[in-house]
Nucleic acid binder design. Structure first.
Ligand SMILES: [Mn+2]
Ligand SMILES: [Mn+2]
Ligand SMILES: [Zn+2]
Ligand SMILES: [Zn+2]
Lengths: 140, 140
DNA sequence: GTCCTTATTGCAAAAAATTGCAATAAGGAT
DNA sequence: ATCCTTATTGCAATTTTTTGCAATAAGGAC
């Protein structure tokens, strides 16, 4: 089974169609070691699928995020980027050098629980970006 | 003194120029009771400044955010929006009906302190968006 | 395998956001 | 008040993202 098999299975199980475009984009997301922009994903996927178009990439990413297989990353200046929905985590980002540190969700869980209790909202898997200045940049 | 006086003063103090465009955009942000998109701000500011152009609005908002007088709001699908930098707060947003609940920063302060202690990052005033499903939408 | 339904895609066009650069005007010096 | 420097703006062009719609092809029924 291909590496994106688990994800395409979820697609069909939930009544969505498994297309080469979705397969390829999932494949790329699965092998990414960072957040990818739609442009990066298009460039990569286009090698395998020469007829692929940008609107399809944008729509596919939005769709995958909607159904929870991918998630959007909020970096500075609301440039969008995506990653596969794996383990829950968040990010600490340096405003000067853009260095990122990953924060396991467990660190944020308590706060989420409090917010749920106080507001009645049911939180979904969030993917937060905290901005600050990293230790290195604080010195200079 | 006009209502945006405090903010324009900060501009000159820090060596930035006070222009009618910046003045007007600050004025609009100060009187907004919600996050405003660049388009909304342009439309409003354009009434007073007929020569104003979109690039100036985008650049001004980015600039104000950079120097801390405004802040960007991350809503769904990374549509950008801005508000004046006033009291620190965050948002809880319903993914179904888009209803927003404001969260005072004090609720998040403990977590921020922990993150600072553990990572050595110095956090800046963040403006977080937590997504979830509101009580009303949970019923339906 | 063939047919059918309709979700998904590609294409063309529109809208939103960004960029380069020359013209303008803010603010300091005289 | 006038001049000077250069930060800031407007304009034109480009790039990115979104949208509408007709063509395509995925998946189910036979
Ligand atoms: Mn991430
Ligand atoms: Mn806000
Ligand atoms: Zn840094
Ligand atoms: Zn709701």
């Amino acid at each position: 089974m291909t590496c994106e098999g688990n994800f395409t299975k979820k697609l069909s199980e939930r009544g969505y169609r498994v297309t080469p475009q979705r397969r390829e984009i999932l494949h790329i997301l699965l092998h990414a070691d960072a957040h990818l922009t739609p442009a990066e994903i298009f460039e990569e996927a286009h090698k395998k699928l020469p007829n692929l178009t940008e609107p399809t990439v944008y729509r596919t990413l939005e769709f995958l995020a909607e159904i929870g297989l991918a998630q959007e990353a909020y970096s500075e200046k609301s440039k969008s980027a995506y990653e596969i929905s794996g383990y829950a985590h968040h990010h600490l980002i340096c405003r000067k050098c853009a260095k990122e540190v990953e924060i396991p969700h467990v660190k944020v869980e308590g706060l989420c629980q409090n917010l749920e209790d106080e507001t009645g909202f049911k939180l979904m898997q969030n993917h937060l970006s905290f901005f600050g200045i990293c230790p290195d940049c604080q010195e200079n």
